[in-house]
Simulated scan of single mutants.
Amino acid sequence: MIVTIEGIDGAGKNTLVTELRNRTGAEVLCFPRYESSLPARLAARALHGEMGDLTDSIHGMATLFALDRYGALDTLDRFRGSPDLLLLDRYVASNAAYSAARADDLSLCDWVADLEFGELGLPVPDLQILLDTPVDLAASRAADREAADRSRVRDRYESDRGLQERTSSVYRRLAEQSWHGSWLIVDPRGTTEAAVSVHTRLRELREMTITRRNSGNRT
């Protein structure tokens, strides 16, 4: 089964993913895959002003992030419908939320879904977890992270406060509308409490997945 952790920059995604991996032994995949994916590396260069006006193209940037995920399709497919757990740090909803926020146009969410779930055939996640972190707290974390690691300079998206606020709003709307599957909204300010809540949901989800598989094997 595929479970995604979503939220704005500085939301605490990596902290929760690490906690859940320790509790479940799940495999983890983080997007964008800057170290191993050419589309992701090009997107990173664009976000740091090294690719001319590429960053100005909302559709162009969204396509690069989508192609990064398409490059991991073999891994994603191994967990499609499986009781084994794959945790994703960002997935398709991230592309949808940031694209719609940049354009101030919610129709971009459908465009991203058509591209990634439709054209590229990426699996729809079994559960999407939104870390509904206050923008002030997320911005403070991102700034602290940059100060602690001089190689971790915030990119164009991370340093745009207005974009982070709009993206947070779009994320909540996607969760409330159950955009392409089930969502769970958690308060990330208590990491242990959030992990316990999510872990409980994951056990329930795994039991449902096993039941469905066993039912299918009997037909």
Rank of each mutant, 00 (worst) to 15 (best):
S159H: 03
I58Y: 05
P39A: 08
P32S: 09
P125A: 10
F79V: 00
S82Y: 10
L38E: 14
A11Y: 06
Y171L: 05
A100Q: 10
V17S: 02
R154G: 12
V17P: 02
N14V: 03
S57I: 09
W179M: 02
L120W: 06
A97T: 04
G181A: 12
L137K: 01
R172S: 04
T24E: 06
A103K: 14
R21H: 07
A72S: 14
M61L: 12
A142W: 04
A100M: 09
G60Q: 05
S215E: 14
V153C: 05
A113S: 14
H199V: 00
L174G: 02
A11N: 07
G49E: 13
E193C: 00
L108I: 10
G71K: 13
R201N: 09
P123L: 06
D149S: 13
A175H: 08
V28I: 14
R150M: 01
T191C: 03
A100L: 09
D132I: 06
R173K: 14
R172A: 06
D149V: 10
Y70A: 15
I210F: 07
P83H: 13
A113H: 13
S197Q: 13
P83N: 11
D89I: 11
D132F: 07
G52V: 09
S94A: 15
I58T: 11
L163Y: 06
D74M: 04
Q177D: 15
R206D: 02
A138P: 01
H59V: 12
E204M: 11
L42P: 02
E27A: 12
L184E: 11
D84K: 15
V112F: 10
G216L: 14
A139R: 09
S168I: 00
R172F: 11
L86K: 05
I210N: 08
L38M: 10
R23T: 08
G190S: 14
A113W: 09
R212E: 14
A93M: 10
I5P: 03
L130Q: 00
